[in-house]
Amino acid sequence: MKTKKTVFSTILLALVVSICAQSADTLKIKPSFYEVSDYVDENENCLKCHGETKYSYSDADRGKTLTKIMYPDLIVDRDAYYDGVHRSFMCSDCHMGDFEEFPHSLDARMEDNFACIDCHGYDETYAQYHFEVIDAEFAESIHSIDGFSCWNCHDPHSYKPNMRDTEDIKEAIRFNNGMCLECHNNFSNFMLLSDKDEINVVESHDWLPNQVAHFRSVRCIECHTEINDSILVAHKILPKKEAVQQCAECHSRNSRLMHSLYKFQSQKDRKAGYVNSVILNDTFVIGANPSPLLDGISVVVFILSFLVILFHTALRIIKLRN
């Protein structure tokens, strides 16, 4: 009997310990959320449904609880939200409609979304990011069509600076290109916004040598946007006929990559007195790495060799005449 009690106590203790010791990472509402937001509990009123793949509600008429699948575009990932730049916000800061009722009213569901410019434009706090220029560029972009807004590429529920603060440029490039490929490599998404035929990204770039290396090493926007030095990331997406197809635009001295992909790093380096150091580090681009010292040494050695040959030749001619 005593043995049974001991076994039972041990199992119970183990259960209690395992529940208490559950990793914070497996919790839906993590303690870290409270460190970055004062509205975690308020937001849970929304996220208890919109943070899940399924939601349940009571059907008073039928007298039972129903479970439905949440439309994927309406799901907000808690981890991503509390890691994003808008993490300190309360849902109702932006979603001002009457969402407390369920089912939500038609007015609430049809509310206009804010665009970046609505909060960040014409505000000294964000002046350094030039949202007005970004907005103007987007208006001229090939993406400026009905149904296309900032949110198609930048999810406000998870947005955070990518290129600006990255320590891993390859990962930042993968993330950036993922934004484009979300539609341009997924016809189901593409056809929601365009009537054009399906694009095969690999085939349409078959002229590009070392295609895989290019796709891993540069963002789509390096070639598909017009460079604008007044903003950090160019937003004027060009028609495909105007995309860069001249290798020398990147693989050359004064490479356009220094004004796009490596802009953030090169700006920092220029402040520190270095030029092109980023390209000479782990993000080397063939042809874009002028080394004046090595080039200079090469020219001097070549000229000296040539002069020695000329001198030797002259002596031979003189001696031959004598």
């Binding site: 290798c247 020398a248 693989h251 050359s252 001295r253 004064n254 042809g287």
Partner: peptide, 18 residues
């Protein structure tokens, strides 16, 4: 030609050089 490429061009066109 490839080594001394500039964005304005080089003495043999880049893609032909390659």
């Amino acid at each position: 030609s490839l080594h001394f490429t500039t964005a304005e061009g080089n003495f043999i066109r880049f893609d032909i050089s390659v």
